[in-house]
């Protein structure tokens, strides 16, 4: 070590011989409060607060936390998958097939059950199928090096089509009572799916935030080429993410099956858009490298509140879609503006 005196680096003024150097070598660091304020999750949080206030004004039901938690179960399966999708997007890829994977894995579960398999075995089949579907996406992206947006649009159609071939147009039901109605099982006032979502958020948040894999995922998303040159096993990590996405989708598919008590090929139709909406609302950058689980977590609640708020306020479904679309665009503009600012 040539100059162990670290203070000269921290406080340019005291570095008497070459104060000039500091002026141009690096821009002054941003004040800490500013760093915090320009995080995109803050936008999500502000929107969440505003939405809650507006919703409470619209309907007195809204002060009731239990009501909100109950209404959330319709979105919570998508929100769980959106957590994994957040990580996929941070790594610079995208997966549009999870909703179709939910449908196919749930239909496989239903078919296996109808064929006489006990529920645990049928669930195993479903999870295995999620693994295989995710791995298939992963192979196409990492081995054949195809763009994930095209690959997963392809497999979205493929998996949905397979579900229809497998299950036909009829729904499969008749599951035993203990399997059905996961959304009515409560711990206190919290339905089990919400609990799963919260637990998954904490686990994945820690995974992304404090493990070396999380760090490497941000690095891959920031610059894949630089990551390869730094010896990061980019393909292996991406493969893992696609498999995780498939596995999570099959779990979400089973949760839907339990909630509805039946499965059909059109289960979770259009869910991929809801998932992308949640991830984007949470401030994750569509080109990778930035984003957080916290943002997605907040965005899921934002979506729940807006959607239920509008339903309670008797706003027509078409108008609801319009609001969602506008919200997505606004959030993308905000995220982009924030990142452009912090880039300078």
């Amino acid at each position: 070590m040539n100059s162990p005196d670290m203070n000269t680096i921290k406080s340019p003024v005291s570095a008497a011989p070459t104060p000039r150097v500091i002026v141009r070598e690096a821009a002054a660091p941003r004040p800490r409060w500013q760093v915090w304020l320009i995080r995109p999750e803050v936008v999500t949080l502000v929107l969440l607060v505003v939405a809650s206030i507006v919703a409470t004004r619209l309907s007195p039901f809204f002060a009731d936390l239990g009501f909100i938690l109950e209404s959330s179960t319709y979105y919570i399966e998508f929100a769980i998958v959106a957590l994994v999708l957040t990580i996929v997007i941070i790594s610079g890829e995208i997966d549009l097939s999870p909703a179709a994977q939910m449908a196919l894995s749930a239909c496989l579960f239903g078919t296996a059950f109808k064929a006489g398999a006990p529920i645990p075995v049928a669930m195993g089949v479903s999870l295995l199928s999620g693994l295989v579907m995710g791995a298939f996406n992963g192979v196409l992206v990492t081995v054949l090096r195809l763009p994930s947006i095209i690959v997963t649009i392809g497999t979205l159609i493929l998996y949905r089509g397979l579900a229809q071939v497998l299950a036909g147009d009829k729904s499969i039901s008749g599951f035993p009572g203990w399997f059905v109605g996961i959304d009515y099982r409560m711990v206190g006032i919290v339905p089990v799916p919400v609990l799963v979502f919260i637990a998954a958020s904490i686990l994945l948040g820690l995974f992304l935030g404090i493990t070396i894999y999380g760090r490497q995922i941000y690095q891959i998303g920031t610059s894949e080429i630089a990551a390869i040159h730094a010896g990061i096993r980019v393909r292996r990590i991406k493969m893992g993410l696609f498999i995780a996405s498939g596995l999570t989708s099959s779990i979400a598919g089973l949760m839907v099956a339990s909630r509805l008590g039946s499965v059909r090929y059109d289960l979770a139709t259009g869910g991929e858009l809801t998932m992308v909406l949640i991830v984007m609302l949470g401030g994750t950058y569509i080109f990778g490298g930035r984003g957080s689980i916290l943002g997605t977590f907040l965005a899921a609640w934002l979506l729940v509140i807006i959607a239920t708020g509008m339903t309670v306020a008797n706003i027509a479904i078409n108008a609801q879609l319009t609001v969602m679309g506008l919200l997505l665009i606004v959030s993308i503009i905000a995220t982009n503006a924030i990142y452009a600012r912090s880039q300078r």
Partner: peptide, 29 residues
């Protein structure tokens, strides 16, 4: 610019990018 730095990430993250084992011996940074 392309194969070296992670532009938007911190200097420390950039410097330690090639030694994951040293900064996270058990997977936790």
């Amino acid at each position: 610019a392309i194969a070296g730095i992670f532009r938007s990430l911190s200097v420390e993250t950039n410097i330690t990018a090639a030694v994951p084992k040293r900064i996270a011996p058990r997977g936790i940074i």
